[in-house]
């Protein structure tokens, strides 16, 4: 089943059903200078991205269910079973907004550390006022929800793939894309849940 879905996604990228839309034709021309790898990782859409684009992030119920099922199937707990890491490292990752910029105008060095940039969209530690509002405030997250195995697992998986819980969420699928690794996700989860973390102070 899972393989079938992945295959379907790959096929739909390589050979879209029917004629290419105007928008896709424009994309192909505007990015004619992009490398094959950039096409694969940055411009081609997977099935979920294509559906969220098509329905402008408001998928009808059947499509939403389809997305949920596909994204849930990508969830994977870390091999060492550690869902909570070092909140201090997580705090750093929550503030890092650089990494992965390409192009000739202002690229990042290829080895520049990528962060979750959670602060771009969320309020976290109450003392940090430079916090965005695209997502809900997460201040007091662990204090309010506790540390039950269900909460810990949800938090880890939510950061891994936000759309496994909320189809077409604006939040990036950090683990799905490999933007954050398993250890980094555990560090960020600890930043949200650890009683000592400034998020809960």
């Amino acid at each position: 089943m899972r393989r079938a879905l992945v295959l379907l996604a790959a096929l739909s990228v390589a050979a879209p059903a029917g004629a290419e839309s105007d928008a896709e034709a424009l994309v192909r021309k505007a990015f004619a200078g992009a490398t094959e790898d950039e096409w694969r990782t940055r411009l081609a859409q997977d099935e979920t991205q294509a559906l969220c684009s098509k329905y402008r992030n408001a998928p009808p119920p059947d499509i939403a269910a389809q997305i949920l099922e596909r994204e849930r199937a990508t969830l994977k707990l870390p091999d060492d079973g550690r869902l909570l890491g070092d909140w201090r490292e997580g705090e750093k990752l929550a503030g890092i907004g650089t990494g992965g910029h390409i192009g000739r105008i202002q690229p990042d060095p290829p080895d520049r550390r990528k962060g979750g940039n959670c602060y771009a969209c969320h309020k976290l530690a109450s003392k940090e006022v430079a916090a965005g509002t695209i997502g809900p405030s997460l201040t007091g997250y662990g204090r309010l929800r506790g540390n039950s195995p269900e909460v810990v697992r949800y938090t880890y998986e939510k950061i891994q793939n936000a759309q496994a819980f909320f189809p077409c969420s604006h939040m990036p699928r950090f683990g799905y894309h490999g933007w954050l690794g398993p250890k980094e996700i555990a560090d960020v989860a600890a930043f949200l849940l650890d009683p000592e973390s400034p998020v809960n102070k």
Binding site: A23, L26, S53, H170, P172
Partner: peptide
């Protein structure tokens, strides 16, 4: 019309489109 589609077109390692922000 194409511009509207592009505004909502998500792709890349952070799933962004213009509409995200």
């Amino acid at each position: 019309a194409a511009g509207g589609d592009l505004f909502f077109r998500r792709s890349g390692p952070l799933d962004f489109s213009c509409a995200t922000c």
